[in-house]
């Protein structure tokens, strides 16, 4: 096999060393530093973009939280206003209701009293009238009547009628 021809070894090793050294020099100076800096720059760019995105996200979250808080506060204030207004309205309504109610009650009481008085008057007049009618009827029937007796009889009749 040509691989074991020792006479070719020095030449092969010589060219190996030369070519390897040239390739090493090219890689170490022209290739690897450039790729390295490109890769690093890309990683930095990606990292800074990610950081910026994170910051924007945080800011958006903070804004959203502030908005939620402001909204909740406004809602709380609005609810307090509504409650105060409705309380005031209810108080006024009940005061008016009370006033109207007591006036009506007074009117009702006065009217009842008047009705009672007129009823009593009417009843009193009725008794007198009944006595007159009775004496007139008796006068026509028997010619004379004892006024006091008739009044007693009418009273008794009125009492019995009421019962």
């Amino acid at each position: 096999m040509p691989q074991f021809d020792v006479s070719s070894f020095p030449s092969q090793i010589f060219w190996l060393v030369v070519c390897f050294a040239v390739l090493y020099a090219i890689m170490a100076t022209l290739v690897l530093p450039r790729i390295g800096s490109t890769v690093e720059a890309r990683e930095r760019k990606i990292q800074s973009d990610l950081d910026a995105a994170q910051q924007a996200n945080d800011a958006a979250r903070a804004t959203a939280a502030a908005q939620d808080k402001a909204l909740a506060e406004a809602r709380g204030r609005a609810e307090a206003h509504i409650r105060a207004a409705s309380d005031a309205a209810a108080a006024e309504t009940s005061a008016q209701m009370h006033a109207v109610g007591s006036r009506l009650a007074a009117d009702i009481t006065a009217a009842e009293r008047r009705i009672g008085e007129q009823q009593t008057q009417a009843m009193a007049g009725l008794t007198g009238m009944a006595a007159e009618i009775a004496s007139a009827v008796l006068g026509k029937l028997v010619g004379s009547a004892d006024g006091a007796q008739i009044a007693r009889a009418v009273d008794a009749a009125a009492k019995a009628g009421k019962r």
């Binding site: 090219i26 890689m27 290739v31 790729i35 800096s37």
Partner: peptide, 10 residues
Amino acid sequence: LVAGASRGAM
């Protein structure tokens, strides 16, 4: 490799 390394694009 030199062709690939020299541009350095993102």
